[in-house]
Design a protein around this nucleic acid. Structure first.
Ligand SMILES: Nc1ccn([C@H]2C[C@H](O)[C@@H](COP(=O)(O)OP(=O)(O)OP(=O)(O)O)O2)c(=O)n1
Ligand SMILES: [Mg+2]
Ligand SMILES: [Mg+2]
Length: 1233
DNA sequence: ATCCTCCCCTAC
DNA sequence: TAAGGTAGGGGAGGAT
């Protein structure tokens, strides 16, 4: 169970394209030590100046909008229901004319008003959160030339139901949490009026604050915007008032909510702050609650709150045991909990058994032990047994590589799995074989003297030429040949992702092998002995869980990396320990370090928040937080380390340290935190041993991660007659035996409850939630504990007044669905009740394959980037090959330094504050060809016109995989897709084709070796025609060559791909790739069916080619053919558009001198780049057609830009962010061309 | 209504 | 110093 550092998601992405400020907390990562250091990463948080500027631009935009005569309805989106007097068409026209929106469907998330003359009750109910207004409202507004309040026009339902005008407000309002009953309408109205007054006051205050601020960031502004937004959506009249306070009303609510939430988030995120402390203490106690409830030794427990290891817990268990009868007596309804404890207890007691020396005995004794020896006796035995365990299991531990991370690859160890070269190859061995394999493998490492120290010297001796001194182990440059390898072999996240994929394959493969479950025999025996030992009382209890119903178990290793690491460092067992790359010495901060910059940004923001805050307690909390952060760290520079902690021990967690936290922050929380290095091989070994153990009981496994899984135990239990708790005990003992690490187990009637039970069981325990107590069990949990509810959702929920699941239960599902969408709403609702339908699935189809690197990325020359893209392409190809898939969707994801962010990142070689850009394209047929992929990537990259030195992250993803036969585009020609090429060559010798295609006609018919292509005409008749193509690559090429320049560009592209790019690429290549990019940008159904009629020929479209046939062609050729088709299409498209507006390319943009830099900066980065490019281009070739983007091919850049801008413009409209409005202005201008 | 694309969010 | 990956669920909004 992961507790992410600061309770905040890993901010992998810094900022989305459109500059929305969702994910506000991403910033936090920049310096986690500040908790929520995330200033507004978007564009909405700038100060008054920007607000004013953007408002101005917005006004300009509104004026400029084609055919728009006013903005009466700006921000209003209507849905017209049924027959209305001004027809719906007319209403639509009116809305468009006056700045409003119109939606064809009743999408609650989008529309603000329903227009209807009457509404059936059913629909009224459906839309009860959206005001239903008579159409006269629209016409009256237009006549009046201003927006009138819709309230007098509200259409009241036949029922006594409340008018929906304000119910949503009540739910989203930051001023009131909880759900307001419909009957409270009148009170709500009053409340709203009051709030409006408050808001106005706040706004005035805000303006004052902002005006004296020298900060660029103004949270006040944001808050004001948010308040305004709340109102503008639901009380039109009042929104207008707010607008008079100089607040733009086009505000997207999420972002503002995020802003508001920031101050609150801070508290949640900082484990030292008040609220969090409470939460933490609660959490700390949680895992002990059952102990406490049974032992009545709360004070005792609290006196030793830091003892979280097994031994201390066992001492608690011992007390439990001594109160055993009491337990049962105490709580009728908690019998199962009593049982839980008993079993856990047994498990622990097993350790001290005399016959402990062998693992089997351990397990055995675990089951039957009912020891009555004294606590101290047990404890001491426990300790020694732990050591014995450690010794016995030390062979599990690989030689610890310690600092010599890189050199580990050269250590002559018997790796199960080399860090970077391993592909998990499922075997057909039985479980027993697997287990024994495992033992063999780690048995080979039994030489305990090979601690990391000796291994290090060994390494340097054996491989001096490759050994890199840890002292000077710099991260290689991105352009280094070794960079990718180096990075991946040190990336924990890469490893756990990779292992997860491998384990999923492993589990899937289990089903192919024979089903032998040696473990179940042990369980049977254990069960029998358990029953006889514990006698009738136990039988009574164990019969309670109904076996007929499904039982799910969730198993998770305790502090996984740490536990494994401690196997070789048992002396650290009782100390707070963390696994991290941090080695204790921090370099001098770079002179350009942005730490101070970021800190100042953060502080300014905090101050603003404080000033604008109306909530006193929140202010206080935030202030304490600020002080906290300003406090000079006690340690040293170490306290600033931004190295992440992968896993920390439970002792460290007591001090507030969490997985994923920065080392610096952790050191401040826990100054004596011990660190141990990564040992990825060992993690992998333990992980496999773990899975092997479980696989010896069942194959019904869903791999969650390398240290975690779900298993459906319904079968096991009916098979063996054992109880779930018995199984858990046996499993945990076996895992401990085989791996030396402890696991915790949660049991429940569904996956959700099993998982939550694990949380309670940790560390080193087990817990069962029974169906009838589920609701009660879940009630006390925080919503944040529910899987799937992370930082963002939890914040939004807290605004609805739901912090605990109990509170969440009280919110209706409908409300949740309206707020969060149908699926999410239902999930929230059901989870809050402990309901969960999901089944344990061991065989899920993979949907995508990706590789990305957002660390250490620094380029200075473009060819470095291009080469890197090729490396990435071959990396994904490798991954695709191992699972034998191809894909036809390619996405390039880039992280780019935000213009206002310093070049030097706070985290060494980190990505810093970034904008992320995504570009995707679709190939006509799936591929796994590196060159094809790389070609597309490079094209997409070039189309973005970025400055290479600002790139901070590169990722590529392949989707639309061909492993899903049912998926669209994969099942053409049912059954034929596996046909060999032979069948094609033999089938049709003659040209049955009649080519409507002028480009590939005659030659085809003359060839003897033909392949048939099935062509489905784009015409309605859908008849199937055929034409033929030459099979031979060369011949095909010839044909293509005969047909226009198209091939030429293709051929060149191909050529380019085979060579590494250098600094000076020729123009043609650029033109070519750009052209393609244009096409791919538009890739989609529409482009696929394009028919070229410009030259009276009937052009083939992609959809008309038979993918199967193409598949049989050489990859390059196939893609090329399709590309040809597309390029042609594209060219004609461009030509046509040129015709449509002769001056299409003459984009009237203001002269460069009139462009406001600030405005420019408010644009999304991609647009900035485009614009910049435009102006540069213009400077050089003064008045020559404004070819928008770089290349001199007018064919290329223009549609590209239009497309890009249009997309973003859409977002802008929706998000109502000012920067995006500016962008939309451009969009409009462009689309008018 | 249902698909698609482009994201965000979540988990480990 | 530091190794900030990867896959899946799903919402918003557009196209059809
Ligand atoms: N932000 C994170 C979270 C987890 N991990 C790695 C290290 C963990 O050891 C492993 C398993 O994650 P868990 O969530 O299971 O956390 P732990 O096993 O460390 O602790 P526990 O399960 O006891 O809560 O994944 C990581 O590298 N970074
Ligand atoms: Mg774990
Ligand atoms: Mg885990």
């Amino acid at each position: 169970m992961s507790t992410s550092g600061s309770g905040v998601p890993r901010p992998t992405v810094q900022e989305s394209n459109h500059g929305t400020k969702k994910n506000v907390k991403r910033k936090k990562r920049i310096f986690n030590g500040w908790g929520n250091s995330d200033d507004d990463d978007g564009w909405g948080g700038f100060g008054n100046y920007m607000i004013a500027k953007q408002r101005k631009l917005n006004d300009q935009f509104l004026r400029d909008c084609k055919g728009q005569s006013s903005c009466i309805f700006s921000g209003i989106i209507i849905y017209v229901n049924g027959f209305t007097n001004p027809s719906s068409d007319e209403l639509r026209r009116l809305m468009q004319e006056h700045g409003g929106g119109y939606d064809l469907y009743l999408r609650k998330s989008r529309i603000t008003h329903i227009i209807a003359s009457n509404l059936p009750n059913s629909k009224f109910k459906l839309a009860k959160t959206i005001p239903v207004v008579k159409p006269e409202w629209i016409t009256d507004c237009v006549n009046a030339g201003k927006r009138l309040s819709h309230i007098p026009y509200l259409l009241l339902g036949n029922q006594s139901q409340i008018q929906p005008g304000h119910s949503k407000f009540s739910n989203t309002s930051p001023f009131k949490s909880g759900v307001i009953n419909l009957e409270e309408k009148e009170q709500n109205m009053t409340l709203i009026k009051k709030k409006i007054f408050e808001i106005k006051c706040n706004l005035e205050e805000s303006v004052r604050c902002n005006s004296d601020a020298n900060s660029r960031y103004s949270s006040d502004g944001s808050i004001a915007l948010y308040q305004n937004e709340s109102l503008s959506r639901f009380t039109d009249k009042d929104a207008i008032i707010v607008q008079k306070d100089n607040i733009n009303d086009n505000v997207e609510d999420n972002s503002e909510k995020e802003i508001i939430s920031n101050s609150e988030d801070d508290n949640e995120d900082d484990s030292l702050s008040g609220t969090n402390r409470v939460a933490f203490e609660r959490k700390g106690l949680k895992s002990k609650l059952h102990v406490y409830s049974l032992t009545e030794t709360k004070s005792c427990y609290l006196q030793h709150p830091f003892k979280y290891d097994c031994s201390s817990k066992s001492s608690e268990f011992l007390k439990c045991e001594s109160l055993d009868d009491n337990n049962i007596l105490l709580q009728d309804q908690h019998l199962s909990k009593g049982l839980v404890l008993n079993n856990s207890n047994l498990c622990v007691l097993g350790h001290k058994s005399k016959s402990l020396s062998t693992s089997k005995n351990l397990m055995h004794s675990l089951i039957k032990c009912t020891s009555t020896s004294s606590n101290s006796d047990r404890l001491s035995k426990l300790k020694s047994s732990s050591i014995a365990d450690a010794n016995r299991l030390s062979d599990v531990i690989s030689t610890n590589k310690n600092d010599a991370d890189r050199s580990a690859d050269f250590v002559p160890t018997n790796k199960i799995d080399a860090d970077r070269s391993d592909d998990f190859i499922p075997t057909n061995k039985t479980n027993a074989e697997r287990l024994s394999d495992f033992k063999t493998i780690y048995a080979s490492n039994t030489d305990k003297s090979s601690s990391f120290k000796s291994s290090r010297s060994c390494i340097s001796c054996d491989h001096p030429e490759v050994f890199k001194s840890p002292l000077k182990s710099l991260i290689p440059k991105t352009s280094d040949k070794n960079f990718l390898n180096e990075f991946y072999s040190n990336s924990r996240l890469h490893h756990i992702s990779k292992w997860k994929a491998q384990l999923k394959a492993y589990v899937a493969d289990l089903h192919k092998s024979e089903t032998v479950f040696p473990g179940r025999e042990q369980l049977r025996q254990a069960h029998i002995e358990n029953v006889s030992k514990l006698g009738q009382r136990e039988t009574l209890v164990s019969s309670k869980p109904s076996i007929c119903e499904q039982t799910v178990m969730h198993i998770d290793m305790d502090s996984f990396f740490v536990s494994v690491g401690l196997l070789s460092r048992p002396e650290l067992k009782d100390q707070p320990v963390a696994v991290t790359h941090f080695k204790g010495h921090l370099a001098q901060p770079s002179p350009d370090s942005n730490l101070e910059w970021e800190e100042s940004q953060w502080l300014k923001k905090q101050q603003k928040i404080l000033k604008g805050k109306t909530n006193i307690s929140a202010v206080i909390k935030t202030q304490s937080k600020v002080e906290d952060i300003l406090k000079v760290p006690t340690g040293s520079k170490s306290s600033y380390s931004l190295s992440e902690i992968a896993s920390c021990s439970y002792q460290a967690r007591q001090a507030g340290v969490k997985n994923g936290m920065f080392m610096g922050q952790a050191l401040r929380l826990c100054p004596n935190l011990q660190t141990i290095p990564y040992d990825f091989e060992a993690y992998n070994r333990v992980s496999r041993a773990f899975y092997d153990v479980v696989a010896s009981f069942t194959h019904d496994i869903e791999a969650v991660s390398c240290d975690e899984m779900f298993i459906d135990v319904t079968d096991i239990l009916t098979d063996t007659g054992a109880t779930a708790m018995e199984l858990a005990s046996v499993l945990r003992a076996e895992v401990k035996d085989k791996t030396g690490c402890s696991a915790s187990v949660g049991i429940g009637p569904n996956m959700l409850l099993a998982r939550l039970a694990t949380r309670k069981a940790k560390p080193c325990g087990q817990y069962q939630v029974l169906t009838h107590e589920a609701k009660e069990f879940i009630q006390e949990l925080s919503v944040r504990d529910l899987p799937g509810i992370g930082y963002s959702l939890a914040n939004k929920l807290s605004k609805l007044g739901a912090t605990t699941c109990g509170q969440l239960q009280k919110i209706s599902q409908l409300t949740l669905q309206i707020e969060f969408g149908p699926k999410t709403g239902e999930l929230l609702h059901r989870f809050s009740l402990g309901q969960d339908d999901r089944q344990v699935q061991s065989n899920k189809l993979r949907k995508s394959v990706s590789a990305e690197v957002n660390y250490g990325i620094r380029f200075s020359k473009e060819f470095e980037m291009v080469n890197f893209l090729q490396e990435m392409a071959s990396e994904v190809k490798k991954r695709m090959d191992t699972i034998k898939v191809k894909g036809r969707g390619i996405t390039l994801k880039l992280m780019v330094r935000r213009p206002d962010a310093p070049k030097e990142t706070a985290k060494y070689m980190g990505h810093g504050i970034c904008t992320t850009l995504n570009k995707s394209c679709n190939l006509p047929i799936p591929t796994n060809d590196v060159n094809v992929i790389a070609k597309e990537l490079i094209s997409m990259y070039r189309a973005l016109h970025l400055s290479v030195c600002d790139i901070r992250g590169v990722g590529i993803q392949i989707n639309k995989l061909d492993n899903d036969v049912s998926a669209k585009g994969n099942n053409h020609k049912d059954g034929q897709r596996h046909q060999s090429i032979l069948s094609f060559t033999t089938v049709n010798n003659k040209n049955q084709y009649t080519s409507p295609c002028s480009t590939l006609p005659k030659t085809c018919t003359e060839e003897s070796n033909e392949i048939t292509f099935t062509k489905i005409t784009a015409q309605p008749d859908s008849s199937i025609k055929k034409f033929t193509l030459v099979q031979s690559y060369n011949e095909s090429r010839k044909i293509l060559e005969n047909n226009e320049h198209l091939l030429q560009s293709s051929a060149e592209g191909e050529h380019t791909n085979s060579t590494n790019f250098t600094d000076n690429e020729n123009d043609k290549i650029i033109v070519k790739t750009n052209k393609k990019q244009t096409d791919f940008n538009k890739a989609g159904p529409s482009s696929m069916t394009y028919v070229d009629c410009s030259d009276n020929t009937y052009m083939l479209s992609e959809s008309q080619l038979d993918p199967q046939v193409l598949k049989e062609l050489p990859e390059d050729l196939a893609q090329e053919i399709l590309e040809t088709v597309r390029q042609r299409k594209k060219i004609t498209t461009v030509v046509n558009s040129k015709h449509q507006s002769s001056d299409a390319i003459d984009l009237e943009l203001p002269p460069a001198s009139q462009v406001d830099v600030n405005c420019l900066q408010a644009l999304p980065l991609s647009l900035q780049n485009e614009l910049q490019h435009y102006y540069q281009q213009n400077q050089i070739s003064a008045k020559k057609k404004h070819v928008f983007p770089v290349c001199n091919s007018p064919l290329k850049g223009q549609p590209e830009l239009i497309n890009a801008t249009k997309n973003k413009g859409k977002k802008a409209a929706h998000q109502a962010r000012k920067a995006l409005i500016l962008e939309a202005t451009l969009s409009k201008k462009l689309s008018r061309m």
